[in-house]
């Protein structure tokens, strides 16, 4: 009985966490008249306050249809987001997976120092890296391009750290027996390391997706050409007077993230917890 009482505050907290999804879906399904009526106090500055309903009065897909048919810029921005996120994650896979394997399974001189360096670098917020990123992108002439966003992020050391934790957990005996069977270093990496550390790789990708789908600071700083902007910078620029479009596109930006979240939730949890458990 005592335990049941705990459910009330915990459940309330959970509702508060999930409420925005419901809110966005409701707003997306409302027709123009209802939105105008609900948001009037913010839109026209009329007296009173924004009101809201849990379920729209006349649910309609009008907003979604308009977004899909009449907002070509939405598709450009959506595609920009997809391109940048996919590019970054592919880069992280390509260089990050072998790096994590090398750090986790081999002993070589300077390994400990490099590992510490990787941890320090993954902790640096954007404001520390802002000027140095600018200097290198300027030198390479890739400012104002998607490549300029993708490359620095592809070499992020954070996914290396996550995958390192998982690779480190593979029992030495498995690797030893493969070596006795005559497998070379690349075969051990490809046939044993990658499959057994797959959980870590997926964890890093899920965490990475949620991070890069949200990219704000980098494109804001390095992309002058607004047609290159990701969805995350475009959405807040839709004024409230186009509330229907704002709701529909916010919901559309939410969709891939929720999809990845639902599919990869266990990996997400493992990825977060990887930082808390000891080596």
């Amino acid at each position: 009985m005592k335990k049941k009482i705990l459910l009330i505050p915990l459940g309330a907290l959970a509702l508060l966490c999930c409420f925005p999804i419901l809110f966005l879906c409701t707003g997306m399904l409302m027709d123009k008249g209802e939105l105008k009526e609900c948001l009037g106090p913010v839109l026209q500055g009329t007296e009173g306050y924004v009101s809201w309903r849990l379920v729209p009065r006349f649910p309609t897909l009008q907003n979604v249809v308009e977004l899909l048919l009449d907002s070509p810029e939405f598709f450009v921005m959506f595609w920009n987001s997809v391109r940048m996120t996919a590019g970054i994650l592919a880069g992280q896979l390509l260089v990050g997976v072998p790096a994590a394997w090398g750090l986790a399974r081999y002993r070589f001189r300077g390994r400990k120092l490099l590992y510490t360096l990787y941890i320090i670098l993954m902790m640096m917020p954007f404001q520390v890296r802002m000027l140095s990123d600018y200097l290198v992108l300027d030198r390479l002439h890739i400012l104002d391009s998607h490549l300029g966003i993708i490359l620095p992020a592809a070499f992020s050391t954070f996914p290396v750290f996550i995958m390192y934790r998982f690779f480190g957990g593979i029992p030495e005996a498995v690797i030893e027996s493969a070596r006795l069977d005559g497998a070379n270093a690349l075969q051990i990496f490809g046939y044993i390391g990658v499959p057994l550390g797959a959980g870590g790789i997926v964890s890093a990708m899920v965490l990475g997706f949620l991070e890069y789908w949200n990219l704000i600071e980098q494109p804001l700083t390095f992309l002058k050409d607004k047609t290159l902007w990701p969805l995350s910078l475009y959405l807040p620029n839709i004024g409230l007077e186009r509330a229907g479009t704002a709701f529909a596109s916010s919901a559309a930006a939410l969709l891939p993230a929720v999809f990845v979240f639902l599919l990869g939730q266990d990996y997400l949890e493992q990825g977060i917890a990887a930082a808390a458990v000891k080596e």
Binding site: L13, C17, P41, V50, L210, A253, A257, Q265
Partner: peptide
Amino acid sequence: VLKSAYLVPMAIPVASVVLLWKLVFLRGGI
């Protein structure tokens, strides 16, 4: 279930939630 619910905000893009924050916290907001 509750643990999953608490993680949901991580998946909600900032850009999507900004709309809600505005409607909640503006002068005539919720």
